[in-house]
Write a protein that binds this DNA or RNA. Sequence first.
DNA 1: CAGTGAGCGAGCTTCCGCTTGACTT
Length: 774
Amino acid sequence: MKNLVIVESPAKAKTIEKFLGKDYTVKSSYGHIRDLAKKEMSIDVEGNYEPQYQISDDKKSLVSELKKAVKEADKVWLASDEDREGEAIAWHLQETLKLDPKRTQRIVFNEITKTAILHAIENPRQIDMNLVDAQQARRVLDRLVGYEISPILWSKIKPALSAGRVQSVAVRLIVEREEEIKHFESKPYFRVTAQFRPVDGNKSLNAELSRHFATADEAEVFLQGLVGESFKIGKIETKPARRTPAPPFTTSTLQQEASRKLGFSVARTMQVAQQLYESGYITYMRTDSVNLSELALSMAKKEIEAEYGAEYVKTRRYQTKTKGAQEAHEAIRPTNMAAQSLNIDSAQRRLYELIWKRTVASQMADAEIEKTEITIVGSRQTLTFQCSGEQVKFDGFLKVYLEGTDDEEQRESSTMLPRLPEGTLMTLEHCEAAEHYTQHPPRYTEASLVKKLEDLGIGRPSTYAPTISTILKREYVIKEDREAEPRNCTVLTLKGGQVKHSVRTEKGYSEKGKLFPTDIGCVVNNFLMEHFANIIDYNFTATVEKDFDEIADGKKEWRKVIDRFYVPFHKNIRQTQQNSQRTTGSRLLGVDPASGKNVYAKIGRYGTLVQIGETNTDEKPRFASMKKGQSIETITLEDALGLFALPRTLGQFEDKDVTVSIGKFGPYVRHNSKFYSLGKNDDPYEVSLERAIEIIKVKREAEEQKEELKKVYPHEIGQLDGDAVVSNIGRFGPYLTYRGDNFRLAKNIDPLKLSVEQAADIINGAKKKRSKKG
DNA sequence: CAGTGAGCGAGCTTCCGCTTGACTT
């Protein structure tokens, strides 16, 4: 071996190895190999912010493997990504592997093509310490912010909470959107729609009045005024229009489209994309670039020509405009544009087809459209009816793909309009004024939150999905479906010269998979807004990014940048710790009629709770946890008092009391000092004695079965090369144990009837599979 | 495994960004 190349991703290593031939061995660092220790701050604040790095636990064996490879190589090529993090990875590798700079080359490429890689090899450079320092500043700042604010939250609000430059802004967006919605005043308005037919024609057209009415009375006056009116076509306007395809996918836009068109969560999209990437079907899926390689452009061109004809080709080079983009990779695209679809599992196939369509469409001609606007005027009326339509003259990229939209109230406007000359007399066939309500701004979905964060320049492609998981895990936000209340809407219809009133029920749009803030999320956000407004300012990241850029350009020293931030920040931390009150989000609900004491809803150490009586008095208050779906803000006194019904005694079974309550691990039935967990659909406040007894009996039966199994298992099948092979049944089904290793058994295998030979096959088969993966 | 929310005090929790793999009992 002469050359050792180290890249970040193993899939990339595999591809590059093919391009480079046998003088090169390509290995992967699997991302960062060193980081600040997890347990402590690991930043010497007094010692000029010196970071204390250590090799991550899961990277120790990898590092020793890399060290060995380095020893056998004449030259080491550090080929991590061409961005801040990539440069830092290269530097950490150089430091950790103790690489001799004379025998070490830094190379970069932002597309995985043979030309790009050979070009990179011919143009090596040294590690750019300014860029590394920009990364260190980023890392240190995030650690300081996260690890100094979080403990304040533990002492002032609740243990195990967290705050950070990215996650706290994500929560703030969701909390503030909810506030907006709460203060939104939904107003009714009347929309007038009509159907006209040419006097000597039969194809009618739908039109809408050019204005809305605020009240039913106004609408009625208008409708009444239409009686005996004659209509004609006033004006016909046709305008050519063009539509342009969306740029190729980045991580963020892929997540948005997969959410809109396939209903995937952000995490699912990334998981499926990872599978496609590892199989070699698509390029790297964590990217902020819309750039396509020259190879990709020519492949797309060839494919479009062959499939749709030369007139559909339009080669486009896209520019990335995203704030803070680092563009170390290409856009997400198929590696082989000739493969329109793949014979793989359904989720992978659907995501792949989406990527294929988006990429190919981005290299296709504009769609040419003719927009027609028809105005219908009445002889006495000053108001006009409008009707608009579109005709596609040349479909261009629309043949393949059209980007989805987040607009929930999209109106169809692609109807083709009949060709009618101006002045054509029209008959009014039908007219109605229907009540609608103005709609509050939409709540965020996972994907629309990612879009917003990206617009603000907050977070990176590799962190969008984990950030969402974090704020869900901390229970700052909850993702759920909520049905909208149906609303009664007045409809006025003009019929036979009369205006008739009727009522139509409008179901309103239900919120599917939307992000709602929780009590904890709101309380934490309020606390941060009060004490750390600068950190969760929407521009904080953008501001510090400017500093990082200047560090990267060698114009600023990273330690000075951090010091300027840290000194006032830390002072604020100290003051907040000393001066601010414990925050519980407490709300007085009313007075408990039984005791005459106050009832409160607030945040406790283990979640939201209701409390009867005062704290800080001799008499201890009574507490009860809130149920799922209840919140401090909306819980009523009555519901709160209902929570004190536990523990409930349901009655007797086998001469012993049956009681039901909620414990640390959820609701349970207690009988004869034994515990039985309630099922998912059982409500401890409602559950009957009969159901409780059933639960007891089911658990007893399961335990009996377990006892039976214990008589047979563990079962020794026999000896294999001098050691026992044992079969057993565990939490995950039947398995074999042999020499301290476990091997799962297929469902159709009877672990008691297994022969030693069969067991040996299973063990060897599994070992082979494992070593292949390892 | 089966309240915990008062108080005491030990020890624990926590960030962002880069990457995949573990394969359980």
